[in-house]
């Protein structure tokens, strides 16, 4: 009873922190706890967490490397695609030019043929026109002679000499 009162008096009014009697007990359990924490951390927790972080770093580095690889492949594919496009375009131009040349040759031939036909036809037409004109001139001369003869005959029947009239008309027609 007396000891209890004494300990109560020593701890209650002041700071329990300064009650030296509790120190061995406190320190003992503290050291036990620290040893347990240290062993658990250094044997289990810290190596494990370190390994996890390391693994993740490696994984991310690998992924980045792979991504760079894929990117390079994509760039190569794009270059190949562009090259193919350029080749195809050149080929298309070549084919178009060849086709154009063929067509031009056909057109030229057709035009030449048509020109020849046209000139032949126009020559023929000219010949016929000349023919028509000549016959028309002959008819005009004949009509003129007959008309002149009739006119002369009406004026003076004796003067109606067919040869003289014809000659006069022919001279006038020239």
């Amino acid at each position: 009873m007396a000891t209890e009162a004494a300990t109560g008096a020593s701890s209650t009014p002041g700071m329990p922190q300064l009650d030296i009697g509790t120190f061995p007990n406190q320190i003992f359990w503290l050291l036990v706890a620290l040893v347990i924490i240290f062993y658990v951390l250094s044997r289990v927790a810290l190596p494990r967490i370190g390994a996890i972080i390391e693994e993740r770093h490696d994984g991310i580095a690998n992924d980045l490397e792979r991504a760079a690889d894929y990117r390079r492949q994509a760039e190569e594919a794009e270059a190949a695609y562009n090259q193919a496009l350029i080749d195809a375009r050149a080929e298309a131009q070549r084919i178009a030019a060849a086709a154009k040349a063929d067509v031009q040759k056909d057109i030229d031939a057709a035009i030449a043929k048509a020109d020849a036909e046209i000139s032949a036809q126009s020559a023929e037409s000219e010949a016929r026109i000349a023919e028509i004109r000549d016959s028309a001139m002959e008819a005009v001369e004949a009509v003129a002679k007959e008309t002149a003869l009739a006119v002369v005959g009406a004026v003076d029947a004796d003067m109606a000499d067919a040869d003289a009239v014809n000659a006069a008309v022919a001279a006038q027609m020239k």
Binding site: G21, P24, N25, W29
Partner: peptide
């Protein structure tokens, strides 16, 4: 009762309990 010196070295106190809980929380 408060622990008294080395005689009560292994006494389980309220502090022992919370030290243990600290260890458990860390684990």
């Amino acid at each position: 009762a408060t622990p008294q010196g080395f005689a009560d070295l292994f006494m389980i106190t309220n502090q022992t309990l919370w030290i243990a809980l600290t260890v458990l929380a860390i684990i």
